[in-house]
């Protein structure tokens, strides 16, 4: 267990260090997120009610697509110089590589999501910077990134894999996105808790199931 944690942390530290130098992932994710939120803001400018109803959808669509960009790039970096082979021949459980890649993707995506909250608050004139929304953001991002990590390891090996990832990922994370959009809309519209709070344990359960499945299958996916 200690070896697993040490190795996973080494992968996370390496990804953070690489990103601090290149800003390749976060830069692209942030630019996309800013553009997406601004385009939706202009599109919904005239209809205040529609904007109020749609803001949680805007947040989650942006988070999902930003995570796809980050996941694609993160796994492609491992493939470019064959460094994934160097990771896989190290005497550490392959699940440690999975956890390392997942945690770094989760941190990058969550950071983008958190940066979006004050921006949406300003552009949409709605207070989305709310502790409950932050909790929902982390719960939803976990499920998206855990599934995305294992799928990106698979699609990056295929020709045109970068285009394949959203096609493979979106149907699988749809229950998470639906649950999180409903819960976020409920929180932002001050709806009674019983109308939205039930979505949280459902998504947490989906997160748990996806986490177990992803951790188990990762080793088989990266092996020839």
């Amino acid at each position: 267990m200690m070896r697993l944690m040490t190795a996973a942390w080494a992968v996370v530290y390496k990804d953070l260090k690489t990103e601090s130098r290149t800003r390749e992932l976060v830069g692209v994710m942030l630019l996309f997120a800013l553009l997406s939120v601004m385009i939706f803001s202009f599109a919904l400018e005239l209809d205040r009610l529609a904007r109020r109803e749609a803001v949680s959808g805007v947040l989650w669509v942006t988070v999902v697509y930003a995570s796809v960009l980050g996941l694609n790039r993160s796994m492609a970096q491992e493939r470019e110089n064959g460094s994934i082979d160097a990771l896989l021949i190290a005497p550490v459980p392959r699940v440690a590589v999975f956890w390392g890649k997942f945690i770094s993707s989760f941190l990058f995506t969550a950071a983008i999501g958190l940066l979006l909250l004050p921006l949406i608050t300003i552009l949409y004139n709605l207070t989305v910077l709310n502790p409950l929304v932050i909790v929902l953001l982390l719960v939803g991002t976990w499920g998206i990134c855990v599934t995305g990590t294992v799928l990106s390891a698979m699609t990056v090996q295929a020709r045109g894999g970068e285009a394949l990832l959203p096609v493979a990922l979106l149907p699988i994370v749809l229950p998470i996105v639906i649950g999180m959009v409903r819960a976020t809309t409920g929180v932002l519209n001050d709806a009674p808790a019983e109308e939205w709070v039930g979505w949280i344990p459902i998504v947490v359960l989906i997160d748990a199931v996806y986490t177990v499945i992803s951790a188990v299958v990762f080793g088989y996916i990266v092996e020839e």
Partner: peptide, 12 residues
Amino acid sequence: LVSHRSLLYPTL
């Protein structure tokens, strides 16, 4: 293992 690819991280 040493390959014809470096198996290294260029930005480190």
